[in-house]
Design a binder for these strands. Structure first.
Ligand SMILES: [Zn+2]
Ligand SMILES: [Zn+2]
Ligand SMILES: [Zn+2]
Ligand SMILES: [Zn+2]
Lengths: 142, 142
DNA sequence: CCTAATCTCTCTAGTAACTATAGCTTCAAG
DNA sequence: CTTGAAGCTATAGTTACTAGAGAGATTAGG
């Protein structure tokens, strides 16, 4: 059995984050010691490793919640799990596309600045007027 | 003079967002009509367009706050503004690098799944064990 | 056995950048 | 004059944590 601190060490997830995951129901409530401290077993360790790895790959917690409940039903077809992964892949690709457009505009801005005064700064100028941009770069999360 | 609704239309920034920007001091408090409704002039319109465009390019509000106060001092050298833009460019590039690593892992996961049951699903398997990943993909924001 | 250092406990609040809701007042059109 | 849209304030919710306060538990050394 592991204390919360050991579990944190073994998984790389910080102690308050573990408690937070418990609070939102992503980790089940563990047993407690005589002195009311949380004690975790191997199953919890693996579950938390799964969460950690999925987070590292950018899955939102709600998607992870779904993946975990799927992985509790090993006989079911895996189409739903694959769908979640593909959705995540699409989201990642969309973010890359958007960020590349931003990268291009920022490069142009920085490159065109003559390093004089603010009055003539291309950075300030472009920020004030999207017509000076080479591409459209819609808002969207990023 | 523009009402808040017109200003929202003209800039593409939603009404509650404009009030939020005022609340955090990014937009100065505008004048009011007899009936206590906000009224904006041309200067405010341009300022909000600047904010909107910088947001679209991914600048955080704190950076925008600095850029705005720089742009109020046109005689100053623009090095600080350029520095903020370069920092934003670096941040964007870092996010792209990270997302590309994720994209690669997600592609592999999805491609290797045989579409059987959860028990044999490569997606679930890889999520449970980072050793099955081809690269390291550290946590970090993004 | 006692004490000091380290963990752990609960609870609250704060982060970024908004978005949504509730309940009210004001304005413009017919 | 009435109705519907737009505006007002204030509060709370979003995502995924992180930080802090103040109290109790555990462990290592003496
Ligand atoms: Zn410049
Ligand atoms: Zn632009
Ligand atoms: Zn599968
Ligand atoms: Zn991995």
């Amino acid at each position: 059995m592991l204390t919360i601190g050991k579990l944190a060490q073994d998984t790389g997830v910080k102690v308050p984050t573990i408690r937070y995951y418990e609070q939102i129901g992503l980790l089940p409530e563990p047993g407690r010691s005589a002195g009311n401290q949380r004690l975790y077993g191997q199953g919890q360790l693996e579950r938390l490793r799964f969460i950690r790895h999925a987070r590292d790959l950018g899955f939102p917690l709600e998607a992870i919640r779904d993946l975990l409940s799927l992985s509790d039903r090993p006989d079911q077809p895996c189409a739903a799990a694959d769908g979640i992964a593909r959705a995540q892949l699409d989201a990642v690709r969309a973010r890359i596309r958007r960020l590349k457009a931003l990268e291009g505009e920022l490069e142009r801005m920085v490159a065109q600045c003559a390093h004089g005064t603010i009055r003539d700064c291309r950075v300030i100028e472009v920020l004030g007027d999207h017509a000076l941009c080479a591409q459209d770069h819609p808002a969207a999360a990023g």
